[in-house]
């Protein structure tokens, strides 16, 4: 067994101390895993992802990301761990007043990457999600699927080790949802650990990977299946 990239110990969270979303969660996610987290709406999928990003502190227990206890990291140094992660939202959260290129290079600009390199990397990343020619466009002019792919490009442009996606296909049609999954599988094939929170069982069955479900205050391992070969990039096959 390889060293865990994400590990939780006795993790539990509640917003009001009356109803627990989950408790005593001891989870191990290994590098390169493709993980689905499922459960009904309001079960705590988003909360779990927010705990992994340390957007929230758990009510109890610990979260270790790449061996680091998130609770022990001072606020001022949190950015270091977040730069190892990418995040995709259900509602894309692109900045409408920026172009696609500006949205994708948001972090690179602040990291002091030279403009030429920013552009090259952005175009390369946009090409990898099938949007090579749209870098000058404005997000509101794009379709939902295109916007989500821009959001994915933004999340992976800095080569994160972990990609978290919260209901990334929630606003998309089945065909586009599958396309997004294909992109996630390709990202995963390059070594990035992918964790997708979704309640779309059809998609989970179609893709494969490790499946965890939030049920009755527990996050339980449900199933593990190989990734659907039809989604894998040809070079992996």
């Amino acid at each position: 067994m390889r060293a865990a990239i994400i590990q939780t110990f006795q993790l539990g969270h509640t917003y009001d101390r009356r109803r627990w979303l989950f408790r005593d969660v001891n989870l191990v996610i290994e590098p390169g895993d493709f993980v689905f987290l499922t459960g009904p709406s309001g079960a705590g999928k988003t909360t779990f992802l927010r705990l992994l990003l340390r957007e929230l502190h758990p009510t109890e227990g610990q979260v270790l990301v790449m061996g680091q206890n998130l609770r022990a990291i001072p606020d001022a140094r949190l950015y270091r761990i977040r730069r190892q992660m990418g995040f995709v939202f259900q509602d894309f959260r692109l900045i409408p007043t920026y172009t696609v290129l500006e949205n994708v290079t948001l972090l690179l600009r602040l990291m002091g990457v030279p403009p030429k390199e920013q552009r090259q990397r952005a175009i390369r990343t946009l090409q990898s999600v099938g949007l090579g020619g749209l870098w000058r466009s404005s997000p509101p002019a794009l379709s939902g699927g295109e916007q989500q792919r821009v959001a994915i490009a933004r999340a992976i442009i800095h080569n994160p080790k972990i990609l978290l996606a919260d209901e990334p296909t929630g606003n998309l049609d089945p065909e586009m949802s599958l396309e997004i999954m294909r992109i996630f599988v390709r990202i995963n094939a390059s070594g990035t650990t992918v964790i997708v929170a979704t309640h779309d069982d059809r998609l989970i069955r179609m893709v494969g990977g490790k499946l965890y479900a939030i049920e009755r205050e527990r996050i339980q391992w449900v199933d593990q299946r190989p990734i659907n070969p039809s989604l894998l990039p040809t070079e992996v096959l």
């Binding site: 990003l53 950015y79 977040r82 900045i95 972090l107 999340a155």
Partner: peptide
């Protein structure tokens, strides 16, 4: 978004 992406 910036904060989640890892901006200092």
């Amino acid at each position: 978004i910036l904060s989640l992406l890892g901006a200092h």
